[in-house]
Design a protein around this nucleic acid. Sequence first.
DNA 1: GTCTATATAATGATAGAC
DNA 2: GTCTATCATTATATAGAC
Lengths: 232, 232
Amino acid sequence: MADVRDIPTDRDTRPPAVDTVERIRDAAIMRFGRDGFGVGLRAIAADAGVTAGLVVHHFGSKDGLRRACDDHVLAFIRAEKTKAATSGTASMLLAQLAEIDRFAPMLRYLLRSLQSGGTMAAELVEHMMADAQEYLAAGVEAGVFRPSRDPEARTRYLAYQNIGGMLLWASMHLDEYQEDFAAAFRHYLEELTLPALELFSHGLFVDRSMLDNYLMYVPDPPSDGDAAPPAT
Amino acid sequence: MADVRDIPTDRDTRPPAVDTVERIRDAAIMRFGRDGFGVGLRAIAADAGVTAGLVVHHFGSKDGLRRACDDHVLAFIRAEKTKAATSGTASMLLAQLAEIDRFAPMLRYLLRSLQSGGTMAAELVEHMMADAQEYLAAGVEAGVFRPSRDPEARTRYLAYQNIGGMLLWASMHLDEYQEDFAAAFRHYLEELTLPALELFSHGLFVDRSMLDNYLMYVPDPPSDGDAAPPAT
DNA sequence: GTCTATATAATGATAGAC
DNA sequence: GTCTATCATTATATAGAC
């Protein structure tokens, strides 16, 4: 007898009885994100309602499946980022996406992938870095961000700290929020917004003696003056 | 015939033909750190010059072995930290330790463990957090750090960003420096010291309108005024 | 304490029927 | 396209000889 999933009907407004390949891929994204990349093909196959053999048949190997997941999530993130006109922090975009329950599996997968540091992670971070560079440069131009002696280094620093901090927080606290991904992100942002704004507004040091001291011991930095006026 | 390793001699100034249990544990720390926790018991056993069965015999299970490694590395880090009178950033301590080649395996293991987010990771981060809290409070008292409206939140923010940033950097770049762990850390610190000092000295924003705007929308913060004088 | 041999389970992947 | 059946490998863990 034919499986009911294979019969598209007019009432089916959901992703119209998605193709089996996509169903497997989505199941893999969910499993990988929830249980890590050590999970077996059989578990993924069962979630998708198929057998392990079929997974290999379609994706060649477990690694092929993983690549397919990477590609899909990466494409998704990029698409969503272009949609979100409000250029902001990477964390802000992710928090925004986390509000949509349907996206949670992909965000879980994304975090898991960043943790594992594969090819996708590198590509994604590099991509975020380029965006941040542009974002910061525009802010400097507009007079809201201070100039830096080494803008590229600053971008890298901020990006690594920002993404890494979120990642570490997630890897330690995400289990507490079993399914409510959005709540986790909200909590994360609520907790850290004040100190972030303080640091970004005042810095941490009372004076700039540490910086001046450092500048005396390093050769001439790439470019840019330090003509920014002191904060009021 | 007796294994030469079992015969301690006067010429043996190395860790004196270490006990088998310790040898297995050290091999595990190295393997886990280099290849991740998915590595098999056989590989570890081979490195230690024993069989897989003996590993289980001594540690009960793979998880028991992992716990033993956790305990040993954690104890090591704590001991070294108390030795290092110069209280500084967590990254600074690690960079300092990385200069000693003998410690590289344990640092690799540490990073791997933080990535995986187990119990040890949580305990270690919490520990670092408490230190940072003390460090920051002392700095505020001494007048070198600005006060914060929410010192605990600031500590958590800085700790997560700091550790997480280093972790992300490591997970993406560490492969490039195959064996030279110290060089990797040096490079990391060299690259990020300037932007860090800039941020800590000036902040990122030209003015504090973002902060003020935020403060208008949140209820009254925990404590502490904002009486810090402007930089310069 | 240490080894050999083995039990048992799960893995990724293949072959071939339908 | 999909499944069943199976292979070869590897995993952790156990049992018992020495």
